[in-house]
């Protein structure tokens, strides 16, 4: 599992921001923390790096979210999808 702490900057339009927060509250991977002004704390719990990226992209695409900054990541090393092979491997 990968756990990330995220700082969301919400849109200055309150309606959009509230709609985004409602979406976030329904998402099973998201735990909402406190909000102050335009900034919202979020914890994200996903299976691996690929899911983490997908969730990140989903957050960025929400109309009420302007920016997503990652604050912390707890991780476990994952194997690469494909092995590395140098062009000039001996």
């Amino acid at each position: 599992m990968t756990f990330s702490g995220l700082l969301l900057t919400l849109n200055s339009d309150d309606q959009l921001a509230e709609a985004a927060l409602a979406e976030l509250a329904r998402h099973p991977a998201v735990t909402l923390g406190p909000r102050r002004e335009r900034w919202q704390a979020v914890a994200l719990e996903v299976a691996d790096g690929a899911d983490s990226r997908a969730a990140h992209d989903w957050l960025l695409a929400l109309p009420g979210v302007d920016y997503v900054d990652v604050v912390s990541v707890h991780f476990e090393p994952e194997p690469l999808a494909a092995p590395l092979a140098p062009a000039h491997a001996a």
Binding site: F3, G5, L6, L7, G33, R35, W39, A41, E45, H74
Partner: peptide
Amino acid sequence: LRLSALAAATAMVDRRAEA
């Protein structure tokens, strides 16, 4: 781990809002 992540994010929210 989830609460650790949330705590780190909350600290940043506080910092941004100068609270």
